[in-house]
Design a binder for these strands. Sequence first.
DNA 1: CAGTGGTCTAGACCACAGG
DNA 2: CTGTGGTCTAGACCACTGG
Lengths: 233, 233
Amino acid sequence: MNNPTFRNWQSVQKEVLRRIHAREWPPGELIPNEADLAQEFGCARTTVNRALRSLAESGLLDRRRKAGTRVASQPVARATLDIAIIRADIEDRGQKYGYQLIEREEVIPPISISAAMAVETTQTLLHIRALHLADDVPYALEDRWINIQIVPSAAAESFKTVSANEWLLAHVPYTHGEIAFSANSATQNQSMTLNCPEHSALFTIDRLTWDNDAAVTKVCLLFAPGHQLRTVL
Amino acid sequence: MNNPTFRNWQSVQKEVLRRIHAREWPPGELIPNEADLAQEFGCARTTVNRALRSLAESGLLDRRRKAGTRVASQPVARATLDIAIIRADIEDRGQKYGYQLIEREEVIPPISISAAMAVETTQTLLHIRALHLADDVPYALEDRWINIQIVPSAAAESFKTVSANEWLLAHVPYTHGEIAFSANSATQNQSMTLNCPEHSALFTIDRLTWDNDAAVTKVCLLFAPGHQLRTVL
DNA sequence: CAGTGGTCTAGACCACAGG
DNA sequence: CTGTGGTCTAGACCACTGG
């Protein structure tokens, strides 16, 4: 049984993947415990643990103390998306980045915004609207609210040349956030700004960013028609 | 220096996060090496490694041999999406799942499909169109192509009661895939099936699944207006 | 070439939860 | 209560890569 072929966790993982894939270990099946696998593979239990833990993180295995390790019966596809700064996205594709500030105002937001950001309905927020361009063509429309009580330094920024998207990521820390992807129909105003037909289907990212229970910023990004967000599984 | 507070990798990670967050280690900064941190925290280097590796995987740190570990200067937001079986998605929200097969045929696909799936232009594929419902309301429209040379058992499935979405995940292994999210305008046909206005903005998932360089299936999922895909950061 | 992260090992103790 | 995964340790060697 002592198989000298598996000397590192990657090779162990590869072999485990092979067995799952070949249905030697079918979905839902209990696989041998770490100690047994370590003996079979001729390596330390730590190494087996590393391989299996990694597979569990990607959703292929289901591990529970005492219950052991099972092949996931419904293999969830876990996609990892990297949401970068818009400028970086554009430049990575070799296009020229452009930026235009449309509006900047400090106002009391609609109830829907103050509620989502958990601020008093009477509190003033900084409202920014801006357009991102790729090779001089409209790329994305940014509509953002910033909590200037939490980020007072934002009040001094004009955001005329640096987008709020970029400035915030570089200057303001956050602890966690929520993000939602959806599709929205372009309003007349939006379609004019993005230079597309009215009612075009726009890929949309809504994002709410928190710093320890205080909302930092809420942003809605509307991408020009045709935009895709891609990743591998 | 020997601080007895940090006994496990989670607490080490938490402290590192605190320092990043408090800008004690600003973006781009080189942080102490593992051995030094281990001494400071009073734990083994392995434990520090575990904490830092995990942060690097989530994009907060940038690690390179010899060069050391740096705080990411452009913290990429890395969102993890779980793409489950549609039925599971609906039932998890306490709704009743429904399924209707619209069309099932074995035909030679359009060039765009055969090219994407890297099959001969003359090869017949299984084409499935189906509707998923939540509480009897249209939820998503599935348009799928299956490579019956790779999955011959699919040719014997009627897909009248079990969706291809679910059947494939349970019966057909795959090694990797590509996924893309976008927004599309509903065609007249689509809008009738989904019972929504024509030209509605539909959230779209395109997915191509491979088994070792052979395409298994290509699917386009069009979700009814209002659908959101959510996750946390 | 030398410093850094990447990994392996053997052994140990612990936390959790199934039976 | 007991088996399983989760983790820590100390020490070691290795792989990569910056200077």
